[in-house]
Design a protein around this nucleic acid. Sequence first.
DNA 1: TTTAAAAAAGTGTTCGAGCACGCATTAAAA
DNA 2: TTTTAATGCGTGCTCGAACACTTTTTTAAA
Lengths: 354, 354
Amino acid sequence: MKKKIVRIKDIAERAQTSKGTVDRVLHNRGRVADDVRERILAIIKELNYEPNLIAQSLKSQRAFNLAALIPDPNLDSYWEAPHNGLEKAEKELRQYGVRITKFIFNSHSDTSFIAKAKEVGREHPDGLLIAPIFYKEALPFFKEWAEMGIPYVLFNTQIEHVNPLCYIGQDSYRSGSLAAKILRFGLHSPGTVLVAHVNEDISNSAHLITKEEGFRDFFKSEQLEDTFKVISNEINFPDEEGPDKQLDELRKQYPDLSAIYVTNSKAFEVAAYLEKNALKDIKLIGYDLIGRNQQYLNKGIIDFLINQNPLGQGYWGIHQLANHLIFKKEIPAIKFLPLDIITKENLDYYLDPQ
Amino acid sequence: MKKKIVRIKDIAERAQTSKGTVDRVLHNRGRVADDVRERILAIIKELNYEPNLIAQSLKSQRAFNLAALIPDPNLDSYWEAPHNGLEKAEKELRQYGVRITKFIFNSHSDTSFIAKAKEVGREHPDGLLIAPIFYKEALPFFKEWAEMGIPYVLFNTQIEHVNPLCYIGQDSYRSGSLAAKILRFGLHSPGTVLVAHVNEDISNSAHLITKEEGFRDFFKSEQLEDTFKVISNEINFPDEEGPDKQLDELRKQYPDLSAIYVTNSKAFEVAAYLEKNALKDIKLIGYDLIGRNQQYLNKGIIDFLINQNPLGQGYWGIHQLANHLIFKKEIPAIKFLPLDIITKENLDYYLDPQ
DNA sequence: TTTAAAAAAGTGTTCGAGCACGCATTAAAA
DNA sequence: TTTTAATGCGTGCTCGAACACTTTTTTAAA
């Protein structure tokens, strides 16, 4: 029962024609009589022909220049991981002619984003991976890229109605619900639960709102609204200061504060505050395995982290582009990455995957 | 700054010789004068030659017959996932000539295991993936296979000192600690915690003991031994009966039983008991996303499941063999898969990965 | 009917590595 | 010295698909 591999030549023989003709049918290059075309198509189906990708890419030798429009990891270490993911994917796909050019912008500066986005257009890449953290500023570019026929994959931040090839990242709503579920598991007595948006421009970050919704809806759907009061707050402060003032204020207002959910990777800021004030009983959950979060996770001040798998986002983003451009596979419009729950005990396994 | 891809021909030209000679150097086929050999080696290093895997595998066309010695998924649905992982890997690697023959044994019958293991030897596969759930019975075969030069990859059950190419699975000790950490997070008041080994022959399953150790050591290292009493029990019963009698007994003995850790995929048996007796306050954690566990997870009776990623175990097992046999890569002796924590909220993402 | 143009079909080279084969040179055996 | 073997090295075919190029056939125009 050994399946013989079907080649173009086999099809040609069976159809009593030449491999050149079969090739034209396969690639819709035209110049084939309709009846022959039908015959060949039937045989292709019958023999269940699958092109040999190896031979294919050996021949074509085409260069695929991909662009990656992503924030500077030096300014926010969260972005280190996507860079690594990109590079990992590039290594694997170099054989297939994939080259990646990085366009790195300042995550605090929309003008820097715009400048780099313009550069991307000038480069005319074959595909684009983008972390569209500036929602409003990104919109016009999507139109531009679509017109230029450049397929783009979004990651990290989901934006509706801009028709990307694919979005890669987490389901923010579910992510919020999951955080709620875990915190609730650790909460015994009634109290106040804080959703903290730390140092982030909420108006331009729809996904943080979605996380909060998911979080709140968990408590609603489990009929826990009487037991736990969910409040939310934007906590903004300059780098040197820390969130002390705002959190002091909140604790005064809600003395029964028993858990904090930080919606981005800045849980360490809150953790530092909790440590300083020896608030051992306030549960804390946040996002992302950046160095400072790991420290507090290991100390037991952060209880859980949800991993957004930023490395995987970069990695899969490039792979989706390759699947589309090189392997002509169908791409799902959304690829949700798992919501990994991280504690001190399983941290290692998520740090340097595969 | 475009890196030019270095071919054998390039090396040959630079060394003023022919590609045939370079090829002999590359493959240690001998028949090359020492000085030429040195020269070529130097150039290979200098130009940083990396063989084009695509061209390589196009040419070689070799068939790799792999064998998989695994339990029957019809008798224990846990084993469905590894089968799927195997098939997924086979699909990806078919291009490279990989074919897998499955040798399926009855997970309740050591004689069936032995019979199938003998069959494997007769087939002389190029590589073997095995779930060695019968420790004692498997030992002599490892020796046999080693003598035959068949590399074998272990998965699911780690066995020391049998010199496999690689072990793929979870770190059982850590796994136990993780379970403890999660349960502890949800435990408020002092009480008894049960480690339940359900319907499993402990004497032949070292990894269950290791899990228990990890679990107990967590409570020790966190100095919680005074607060929580950890007991363990083998709960064995015929399929029709259920664990009711044993659990009733245990609850009588330990009225403050507040959490149960099931060390294998049989948490659903305990969950059924808890549901029947409306024991909402006993926390329950177990392993694996098999159908019946999922039901109780969604009902909220099982609080958390730890995913052993059985699909991934099969998938990576085959890939490790391929990496060794086809791509001649270095294989790490142990590949620990992540300890995924699963709740109702993130279950979906782990059901059909990628 | 002839001729040109268009359409259809076929041929042959290429990609990079593997490997069989064969030739040439040198060393060892007769 | 001749024969044989061993060693060193180069040539050329192969894998399957892509595509440029050529040849054959069909159709339309003269």
